[in-house]
């Protein structure tokens, strides 16, 4: 009897403790999700009444060159950012995995850009990238190389942002690779050395395949990060030159807040969410299937 009552009592406690989250979920997750399905079929500037337009937002989206431009820009970003990120992070992680004095200090320093505000980092890189007075072109000039139009050339601007984003985030991925490296059983290396495998072959056949789960995490997180790119182009280039750094998130923001096209912005967000889920699913499938050579 007593047992039953006690179970029922903490039955109710569980409900009470969860109730705030349930309310939060209904208000800020479920309702916006449901409302997005309404919004994408309407034209609305928030001020005048909503107007049902059926599939017009999607017809417009399919024919919108700026949508494709923003999608292409995001892909350009990812194609540079992800391999660069993995290479730099893995390189530093392998060095920091060597038992050396002071490696904790280096790890902490490499992690510093991760915690600092993206706005501050962007201001900093705006100065480093400046064509006439920038530090980077100053360094190039001191070794008699021509200046690079980091942000002023439409071909260079997105790659420049990808380099900056790599610099900012690589610290997380160094740490993730270090965790991955420490999880590889030592016996594998011992057995390989007994068989006479060179350091390179050990890396190729043990280290790299064993890091596969870490690589998946890094690819997925970088992809989600790439699709969220907003403040960097907003501050650095405003989406230019010639729309070359207009990111998906920046385009959604502009549609909603410069033009007041709430329905169209919601439709863009909807399509982008589907694209993100699709890309991430494909990435997971492809990397997981890669044979452990």
């Amino acid at each position: 009897m007593n047992l039953v009552r006690s179970r029922r009592r903490h039955d109710r406690t569980g409900v009470w403790l969860s109730l705030p989250y349930v309310i939060f979920f209904l208000a800020f997750v479920a309702y916006p999700l449901v409302f997005s399905f309404v919004l994408i079929f309407h034209r609305w500037n928030i001020i005048t009444p909503m107007e049902w337009v059926g599939l017009k937002n999607f017809e417009r989206l399919i024919a919108d060159p700026l949508f494709y431009r923003s999608l292409g820009n995001t892909l350009t970003f990812l194609v540079i950012h992800i391999p660069l990120q993995i290479a730099v992070a893995l390189g530093f992680a392998l060095l920091l995995n060597v038992p050396l004095r002071g490696r904790g200090f280096f790890r902490a320093l490499y992690f510093l850009p991760v915690v600092v505000s993206g706005v501050a980092v962007t201001i900093l890189w705006q100065q480093l990238y400046s064509y006439d007075y920038g530090v980077l072109n100053g360094i190039l000039a001191s070794v008699h190389l021509p200046p690079v139009p980091w942000l002023v050339n439409a071909r260079m601007a997105m790659p420049s942002i990808a380099i900056m984003a790599t610099w900012k985030n690589v610290g997380i991925y160094i740490v993730l690779f270090l965790v991955g490296l420490q999880n590889i059983p030592r016996e594998l290396y011992e057995a390989a050395s007994l068989d006479g495998a060179t350091a390179f072959r050990q890396f190729r056949h043990i280290t790299f395949p064993m890091l596969n789960p870490t690589v998946i995490v890094i690819v997925v997180l970088s992809t989600i990060g790439g699709f969220s790119l907003f403040i960097e182009p907003y501050v650095l280039t405003g989406g230019g030159p010639m729309q070359s750094t207009l990111s998906g998130m920046l385009y959604i923001y502009n549609q909603a807040f410069y033009f007041g096209h709430m329905g169209y912005a919601a439709a863009l967000g909807f399509v982008y969410a589907l694209v993100i889920l699709g890309v991430v699913l494909i990435q997971k499938k492809v990397i997981e299937r890669e044979p452990a050579t």
Binding site: R7, H10, D11, R12, T13, G14, V15, L17, S18, Y21, V22, F25, F28, V29, Y31, P32, L33, F35, S36, L39, I224, F227, S228, G248, M249, I252, A256, M262, A265, A266, G269, F270, Y272, A273, I276, L277
Partner: peptide
């Protein structure tokens, strides 16, 4: 704690983490 809807709540929380924020932002 054991309570009604615990499993459902857990699934909802995992679901929330999987939604790309782009879809809920404007709403």
């Amino acid at each position: 704690l054991n309570f009604i809807g615990r499993k459902l709540l857990y699934v909802l929380i995992l679901f929330t983490m999987m939604i790309p924020f782009q879809i809920t932002l404007i709403p």
